[in-house]
Design a protein around this nucleic acid. Structure first.
Length: 641
DNA sequence: AGTCCACTAAACACTC
DNA sequence: TGAGTGTTTAGTGGAC
């Protein structure tokens, strides 16, 4: 409700994916977000005034947000909340992740304001969750947080600068943002907010964060073992986003949360003489509890937003590169597949799912917030993979078909967010079938007993440590229902295996085009018009084949490479992308490039026309895995012909 | 609106 | 007998 109303009044143009450089868009958006408080004065004011206006807007937005945080959420009668279009319940999104996604936030807010709100939110959340213990050091913690946030922001800007996405001279928008978020202003904001006599409510709200799905409002399912030793805010992609003050810090400390003798947990900065003391402190003060998970979530939101923005900027860069270096009539096989793989479906998702910039309500109430990232990674891994935590995965409000339709490779996702799913009581955005299949293929023998599947589920996902009756029943149901799961009698009983042929048949692409058309599209001639669902399905299915040596069907590695490489984080999925190299000795690229789904009508496929350059262009960007699996010896050759 | 797909729940049979 | 396993059906809801 609130989101919708906000979205009706807060609209950034969907085409405006310029996160940092568009002053006018910022102003436009800001004007709208302010509910007309600033009026439409863009055309008359000077750039300096405009800059000032931006600052004011950002400040007001942040202020309103903070006010809402402090009082609105617990004051149902508050008219402000309902009337002010800027009242985007960002924090509500955190507490009830189903309500608003980062994409929605991004659609609603211009990037600078988004960042402003985000940073404010982070500060506030930290403050909220720390209130009972650190009441006396509010200001100190807040200052610390400000510093960290600014560092984070600057780091992000530097990244963009490195990519040439933003000029070295900060744009007006950036200046505005930075100035708008200067510590004094924020402190002032904080003073305003902290005076609101609802601190307890805020605390309660923070402590009562629903960190699980809405079907579970408890975090009890979090594994105790992971409580203290896993830095929850180290992100699923493995990247620590704790701002580092200098490059030496990382070297001097063996823990990303420890440096300069201080705990780097957001807002903590407790002094620890040595690592041992720090570990002790970490275990004691930052154990797995509501406060820590809330902080973790905040940090995740921060990173998500940055990644989303980076993804958009990357997308812009891709467009620029395409424009400058590539002729539309001469698609470059190396880059084009990237668009196909990720931006194809994802952009479609972006543009179609949110055509009006309206928030896209999650479709599954049971869907948790996930560390999935939204936004296409259209930059090749070779050019951007150093920043490539941007990328690929749509934030997963759509549980059921996320992995199927939106090109979210389960292997990649799991590889990146393994720790997250292990510890967070969130439902993985994959179907049972996908998970089961992944579990089976992940096993050494590519076969698991039912109980082992159960164990895999519980081992990999905190979510499945509860409601066992439900999901176990679902697992059994899926195993029986889908032909792709084959029960094999073994010496030790029945084991389940995966029939890849059936698995691929299970989700045939909806596109009804001829195999020739498919082939042409895959060869890079029709990427632009390639049906997104088909792209996603093809990419996903291909990826899954690539990820795991098939029991039955050899993957079409070429197609899947090109489909996958663009949106996959090479660094994090290298372990999964392992059959690429291992299969190559016996199969030619042409064989590999056999599109999986064309199997339905194999006679029309002309494999010779498949561009080898596609494979060549992709393979070099796929690092060989360190733990290559053995090639399955019983590769069915019929699938290759 | 119809269809497909995924999920959930449940009943039932079989084995150990 | 009960637990675990496997199969099947029905209902529901989202996506297309």
């Amino acid at each position: 409700m609130m989101v919708e109303s906000a979205s009706e009044t807060i609209r950034t143009t969907p085409s405006n994916q310029n996160g940092v450089s568009s002053l006018s868009s910022q102003s436009d958006g800001g004007g709208g977000r302010e509910g007309g408080s600033n009026g439409d004065t863009n055309g008359e004011i000077s750039p300096v005034d405009l800059l000032h206006l931006q600052q004011q807007q950002a400040l007001q937005a942040a202020r309103q947000f903070l006010l809402q945080q402090a009082s609105g959420l617990n004051s149902p009668g508050s008219n402000e909340v309902k009337q002010n279009p800027v009242q985007v319940p960002v924090s509500m999104a955190m507490m009830s992740p189903q309500m608003i996604t980062p994409q929605q936030m991004q659609q609603i807010l211009s990037p600078p304001q988004l960042q402003a709100l985000l940073q404010q939110q982070q500060a506030l959340m930290l403050q909220q969750v720390q209130t009972p213990r650190f009441l006396g050091s509010k200001q100190l913690a807040f200052q610390q947080q400000l510093i960290q946030m600014q560092q984070l922001q600057q780091q992000h800007i530097l990244n963009l600068q490195r990519q040439g996405l933003v000029p070295l001279q900060p744009t007006a928008a950036m200046q505005s943002l930075q100035q708008a978020m200067c510590p004094s202003d924020l402190q002032q904001l904080w003073k305003e907010v902290s005076g609101v006599p609802t601190a307890e409510d805020a605390l309660k709200q923070a402590e009562g964060l629903d960190l699980s799905t809405n079907s579970s409002n408890s975090t009890s399912a979090f594994p105790k073992a992971a409580s203290a030793h896993i830095p929850l805010h180290s992100l699923p992609n493995g990247q620590s986003h704790t701002p580092k003050r200098d490059s030496h810090e990382e070297l001097s400390s063996s823990h990303p949360l420890y440096g300069h003798g201080e705990c780097k947990w957001p807002g903590c900065e407790a002094l620890c003489e040595d690592m041992g003391q720090f570990i002790k402190h970490l275990n004691n003060e930052h154990a797995l509890d509501d406060r820590s998970t809330a902080q973790c979530r905040v940090q995740m939101q921060v990173v998500q937003q940055l990644e989303i923005q980076l993804a958009k900027e990357s997308e812009r860069l891709q467009a620029m590169m395409t424009h400058l270096h590539m002729r539309p009539s001469e698609p470059k096989p190396f880059n084009q597949p990237l668009n196909l793989a990720s931006s194809g479906s994802l952009l479609k998702r972006d543009s179609e799912a949110y055509p009006e910039g309206l928030p896209h309500p999650p479709t599954s109430a049971a869907t948790p917030i996930t560390p999935l990232r939204q936004g296409p990674s259209v930059i090749s891994s070779s050019s951007l993979h150093t920043h490539s935590h941007s990328h690929t995965h749509p934030v997963g409000p759509i549980r059921r078909r996320n992995s199927d339709k939106y090109c979210t490779p389960i292997a990649s996702e799991l590889a990146q967010n393994c720790e997250f799913y292990k510890n967070a009581d969130v439902r993985p955005p994959f179907t049972y079938a996908s998970l089961i299949r992944h579990a089976i293929l992940e096993s050494p023998d590519r076969q698991l007993t039912l109980n082992e599947i159960y164990n895999w589920f519980t081992r990999k996902f905190a979510y499945f440590r509860r409601n066992t009756a439900t999901w176990k029943n679902a697992v059994r149901h899926n195993l029986s229902l889908h032909k792709c799961f084959v029960r094999v009698e073994n010496v030790k009983g029945a084991v389940w295996t995966v029939d890849e042929v059936e698995y691929q048949k299970r989700r045939p692409p909806k596109m009804t085009g001829s195999p020739t058309l498919v082939k042409n599209m895959i060869s890079g001639l029709g990427f632009g018009s390639l049906n997104a669902s088909y792209q996603a399905a093809l990419a996903e299915s291909s990826l899954s084949l690539l990820n795991s040596p098939p029991l039955v069907t050899p993957p079409s590695a070429a197609s899947l490479n090109m489909l996958h490489v663009g949106h996959d984080d090479v660094s994090s999925t290298v372990e999964q992308v392992n059959s690429n190299g291992s299969c190559s000795p016996t199969l030619s690229p042409q064989q590999y490039s056999h599109p999986v789904h064309v199997k339905e009508e194999p006679t029309e496929v002309e494999e010779d026309s498949r561009p080898v350059s596609l494979l060549a262009g992709v393979t070099h960007s796929l690092p060989l895995p360190s733990d290559e699996r053995d090639l399955e010896e019983d590769l069915p050759t019929e699938e290759l012909e």
